[in-house]
Design a protein around this nucleic acid. Structure first.
Lengths: 138, 138
DNA sequence: ATAAGGATGCAACGGAAGTGCATTTATTGT
DNA sequence: ACAATAAATGCACTTCCGTTGCATCCTTAT
């Protein structure tokens, strides 16, 4: 719990009890988390608080937002030292169409792509979809 | 108009007047189109019809759906002969954060990625974000 | 001509993101 | 320690978009 407090402080996020719990929750899940998930896990807390916590986390670089094509925003903790920068931190995500979970594949960075003149790339999102290792039974 | 009719028929879509108009509309736009866009362009038609038309188109391989991270589903015509297959037809998309338009870069296929054992890839979505050629002034 | 199936239109629902404002909790300065 | 200030939380409400059920209209085949 101490490490969480430190991590948040480092990123300029005031470590309230709620925030630490949410961080902890995110940390113990290996899949990306939607607002609704957190909402269910913390029945007592208000949705707005959770929503704003995630937004704060995102803004301060504690988590990154993932758009896996399901239409709901999901979030996952950033790696330590992550700056969410293209070609460096941005990795691909895998969405399993069977269990509906989305995981970070942090080892797999988004490959560099040469765009035509005039295009300036600032961000990228690569999602592969299919069957994850859990569901494929391997 | 005759070509449109033929194209739809080929794909197993009954070429009604409405559908041909929507196809035409999609064809003359170079950016991906959201339901709302079509809705505004065809004020007389009902949203449901437009919605279902897009879904039919998608299902029959006339258009492909694009998730550019804005939270709204967009659609663009498939290339002739497209089968929406990975490593073959799936191309990347570019979303301009300035003009909010998303375009297909059909020349740029999604690079092959070697996933760990157990992952079975069936689909992919790669969106680059930044400033498009129009907006960067080149 | 009529029956059947598909296309369209209308109304309504539901989920998720987001905002304004009041209230509570924490922090700072004296 | 206390007031003043700022930040965090909670409540109510809104909006947007996707989606579905059902009725009606149109087209096609027999």
């Amino acid at each position: 719990m101490k490490e969480i407090e430190q991590r948040l402080t480092e990123n300029g996020v005031r470590p309230t009890a709620m925030r630490m719990l949410i961080y902890k929750y995110l940390a113990q899940k290996d899949a990306a988390i939607a607002l609704t998930d957190i909402e269910n896990a913390f029945a007592k807390a208000d949705r707005t608080t959770l929503f704003r916590t995630l937004k704060t986390f995102e803004q301060k670089g504690v988590v990154h937002q993932i758009d896996d094509g399901t239409g709901v925003q999901k979030y996952a903790l950033c790696e330590p030292g992550c700056n969410c920068e293209l070609e460096q931190d941005l990795h691909l995500h895998f969405h399993c169409t069977n269990c509906d979970e989305t995981v970070c594949l942090t080892e797999h960075k988004i490959p560099h792509i040469n765009l035509p003149e005039g295009y300036i790339t600032e961000d990228a999102n690569l999602v592969l979809k299919g069957i994850c290792e859990k569901c494929s039974g391997q």
